[in-house]
């Protein structure tokens, strides 16, 4: 008799634990889906976007809807998986879409030499706002649209810079 009671006690505990685990798993799944498909916070730092974003680190909100619908255009600040190192995500501004003619100078501080290229099909041309200290399409060429991970729409930190990004 005691064994039966023991078993039933344990089974109820196990059931409780299982249901709690399920709730946590559901929550984590919800978190992942929100992060991957709706919007996610990102910490960005570095000199490449200087007038727009600070050197020391800003927290931005990026939404992941419009790049799936193909609704990003020139002027948008986007998160792009770096073509040189796929583990890194860089923040740049789209300058040209496919078919656009882009003129750029590789090193604006020393020379005036200007190159002109046409962005190939399915690619975008991305540049940092700080042309002097940015590794972008001027170095590695146009990037495939598929590398775009999200569009930045709002800054949440630091507090004085809170608001939409133009």
């Amino acid at each position: 008799m005691r064994v039966v009671k023991y078993i039933s006690e344990w089974s109820s505990i196990a059931k409780e634990a299982l249901s709690q685990t399920f709730i946590v798993a559901k929550f984590l799944c919800l978190l992942h889906v929100t992060n991957a498909y709706i919007c996610s916070p990102t910490l960005v730092f570095g000199p490449s976007m200087l007038p727009t974003l600070n050197l020391s680190g800003d927290v931005l909100l990026a939404e992941h809807v419009s790049h799936r619908l193909g609704k990003v255009g020139p002027g948008d600040v986007v998160l792009v998986r770096s073509p040189l190192d796929p583990r890194k995500i860089v923040t740049k501004r789209i300058v040209g879409m496919e078919g656009d003619r882009i003129s750029f100078s590789l090193d604006p501080s020393s020379t005036d030499s200007c190159h002109t290229i046409v962005v190939p099909k399915g690619h975008v041309w991305i540049q940092g706002d700080n042309v002097y200290a940015s590794s972008d399409s001027r170095h590695f060429g146009p990037v495939p649209y598929g590398l775009i991970q999200g569009k930045v729409f709002c800054r949440v930190w630091p507090p004085y810079g809170f608001g939409a990004l133009e």
């Binding site: 099909k121 399915g122 775009i148």
Partner: peptide, 8 residues
């Protein structure tokens, strides 16, 4: 499996 560079 990867997305095509010319059409994502």
């Amino acid at each position: 499996v990867f997305s095509s560079p010319s059409n994502h």
